[in-house]
């Protein structure tokens, strides 16, 4: 690990320990699964490079993909002087170059950051969040998003997601393969062996998914923590989270008519569901827990407790 000027989670040892332990477990899971696939003599391991390429493309293009898929428009310092000033101030505190700034024209309050490293970072806020939050709260939200960039969360999750995406691809492939009795493989696979590979893949998928969720959760707490250290005001982010999403997060996107027209079943690999950015209101961890931790941190900072 090279040392960087950016801050890490050094103040919360428990969190750091749990995070590295999760990453370690993921690594082991990777290795065991790779060995298993090789041992089972499956030609399926050729899928790995394909998924790898997909993830790399997504990783390098994430900022463009996000701009495209959310309709975010990059804004200049002339167009949004206040926002630029705020981002600049925070970026300086993190010791990172000024990221690009974008705005999404929607009433839904949200914010996110993306970019594989601080040099290629982009931070976006919606017009809804700009309208609803005070300057202090918006600053806390941007601080949280920049913390994701500083902590290189996009990279960590891209790597972690690799296994989950790979297994979800394999699951789909094996499923269809078994359904239609193999794609003319000369080495007549015995059905039992295939079933075994399928079952192991499913198990690896679920364990991988759980580990990635745990990791996302730790990165989220980490960003809350880092953001709070930088701003020195953990309460501001807690206020912002409560103000915006305490009640709002549960209101769905779904159209009521979908209750009457049953959906065809779809298998969407995790990689295709627009990852590659850290959203302010990702469903993990639960909001109440984040607010609680921020309030505790606020109390500790205020009374000088460690």
């Amino acid at each position: 690990m090279t040392s960087t000027t950016t801050r890490k989670f050094h103040k919360d040892r428990g969190l750091v320990t749990r995070m590295y332990f999760t990453m370690f477990m993921l690594g082991i899971l990777y290795a065991v699964f790779a060995l298993f696939l090789l041992g089972a003599g499956t030609p399926l391991i050729f899928v790995a490079p394909i998924v790898g390429i997909m993830i790399v493309v997504q990783y390098y293009m994430s900022d463009k993909l996000i701009l495209m898929s959310t309709g975010a428009k990059e804004v200049s310092a002339e167009q949004q002087p206040e926002l630029h000033r705020m981002v600049k101030l925070l970026a300086d505190r993190y010791g990172m170059p000024m990221p690009r700034v974008a705005i999404i024209d929607t009433a839904i309050p949200n914010a996110f950051a993306t970019g594989r490293n601080p040099k290629n970072a982009l931070v976006a806020v919606t017009t809804g969040i700009q309208q609803r939050l005070s300057e202090r709260e918006l600053q806390a939200v941007i601080g949280h998003e920049l913390a994701h960039v500083a902590n290189r969360d996009m990279r960590v999750l891209a790597i972690a997601n690799f296994l989950v995406t790979l297994t979800s691809f394999l699951m789909t492939m094996l499923f269809w393969n078994m359904l239609f009795g193999g794609m003319g493989g000369r080495r007549s696979n015995n059905g039992g062996g295939m079933m075994m590979v399928y079952l192991v893949t499913i198990i690896v998928y679920f364990i991988g998914q759980l580990l990635v969720l745990a990791l996302t959760r730790y990165r989220e707490y980490g960003a809350d923590h880092t953001g709070a250290e930088i701003s020195g005001d953990p309460g501001a982010l807690a206020d912002a989270l409560e103000k915006i999403s305490g009640t709002v997060a549960g209101i769905p996107d779904k159209d009521l008519r979908k209750l009457q027209t049953a959906n065809a079943f779809l298998i969407i690999p995790a990689a295709l569901k627009g990852q590659g950015s850290m959203n302010l209101f990702s469903t993990h961890p639960p909001l109440q827990e984040r607010v609680k931790r921020l309030r505790e941190l606020e109390a500790r900072m205020r009374y000088g407790l460690r």
Binding site: T247, G250, I251, P252, D253, K254, D255, L256, R257, K258, L259
Partner: peptide, 10 residues
């Protein structure tokens, strides 16, 4: 009471 049931009609 359950916000998740507040499905829209666009």
């Amino acid at each position: 009471k359950s916000l998740t049931e507040w499905m829209g009609l666009w």
